[in-house]
Amino acid sequence: MLYFISSSNLPAFNLACEEYLLKNYEEDFFFLYSNKPALIVGKHQNTLAEINLEKAEQEKVPVVRRLSGGGTVFHDEGNLNYCFITKGEKGKLVDFKKYSSPIIDTLQKLKVNAKFEGKSDLTIDGKKFSGNASHVYRNKVMQHGTMLFSSDLKRLNQLLKVNPLKFKDRGVRSIRSRVTNISDSLSSRISLSNFADLIIEEVKLKFPKAQEFVLDEKDVQKIELLMAEKYNNWDWNYGYSPNYLFEKLSNFPGGAILEIKMQIVKGIIQNVDLDGNCIQFDQISDFQTKLIGSLHNKSTILKQLSSISIDSYFKNISLNQLVSAFF
């Protein structure tokens, strides 16, 4: 077992690091990392159906898809994340309780009543502080989990607040739970860094032959390449979403109403149906054709619509209002 604490707080780097170590090393790993604010979506989720896109854009919070399944989570500097990568027998690789035990045991030693509950949750007095997910690769499993230590829970709830009625798809939906921070249950204050050190010590107790690991320059270069090609790429973070039907009714100041229905396949708009009192119906079929084949991406649609005369197709509605109706 090799262990380390990541020196990076870039969410795309740390998720790329997980995949790189899983697929390029034979050794078992345990490592911890803390990210700058970010929304991390599960592999099989529809990204737009899981996040408050408007708030994420306003606050410049990046959205990154991870390799494992499960629901969307919010990371910030008060959230400590852990990852186990181990080999095992096929069919017996996934064991959430086993790989959560260093976390539970560390907290028990701090006199915090932490428990493993349900399929993969860690709780304190019935409130969730950690969710876990896994990904199997050949004869190996990567299990990782969040740990809410001193996260901004208000911000978490705001960024994950979305209107589920806008999307119809087969993506995995996040299940919202009552959550709590670990720090609220500690009898004496410790820093997140101190908490990370205690978990590492617990891992070393459970794996006496564990040795410290450091990413070398070659590792970092390959992780950064994977980060650029995948984890910082719209195609992975948004376009990989399951195919979906987007439906939204928008009411604008002045009484304008616009209803949009779109079929999205691999992130690309396949068809568009529009209705409302602001439409110039004799021209609208030409407008709909212009959007077919475009990415369901705000910057793409803004660029597309900026090149045409909005007044030729719509009444009493601005460019920015029109763009907002598509998300």
Rank of each mutant, 00 (worst) to 15 (best):
K43A: 10
K43N: 12
K43Q: 14
H44F: 15
H44L: 09
H44M: 05
H44T: 11
H44K: 12
H44I: 01
H44R: 10
Q45N: 13
Q45A: 14
Q45Y: 14
Q45D: 12
Q45I: 15
Q45P: 11
Q45W: 12
N46Y: 02
N46Q: 05
N46L: 06
N46A: 04
N46R: 04
T47P: 00
T47W: 02
T47N: 02
T47E: 03
T47S: 13
L48R: 13
A49Y: 00
A49F: 01
A49R: 03
E50Y: 13
E50G: 12
E50F: 13
I51F: 11
I51P: 11
I51H: 12
N52V: 11
N52E: 09
N52A: 10
N52L: 11
N52F: 10
L53P: 00
L53E: 11
L53C: 05
E54V: 14
E54A: 15
E54Y: 10
E54G: 10
K55C: 04
K55F: 05
A56M: 09
A56T: 08
A56H: 06
A56Y: 07
A56W: 06
A56L: 10
E57H: 12
E57L: 15
Q58T: 11
Q58Y: 08
Q58F: 09
Q58P: 01
Q58N: 11
Q58G: 04
E59C: 07
K60T: 12
K60G: 07
V61L: 09
V61E: 07
P62E: 12
P62L: 13
V63N: 01
V63K: 01
V64A: 02
V64G: 04
V64K: 02
V64R: 06
R65N: 05
R65W: 05
R66H: 04
R66K: 12
R66C: 03
S68M: 08
S68L: 08
S68C: 09
S68N: 09
G69P: 03
G69S: 03
G69W: 03
G70Q: 04
G70C: 07
G70Y: 03
G71S: 09
G71V: 08
G71K: 10
G71Q: 10
T72Q: 09
V73F: 07
V73L: 08
V73M: 08
V73P: 06
V73T: 10
F74Y: 15
F74V: 05
F74S: 03
F74P: 02
H75A: 06
H75E: 01
H75I: 01
H75L: 02
D76P: 00
E77R: 02
E77I: 00
E77S: 00
E77G: 00
E77K: 04
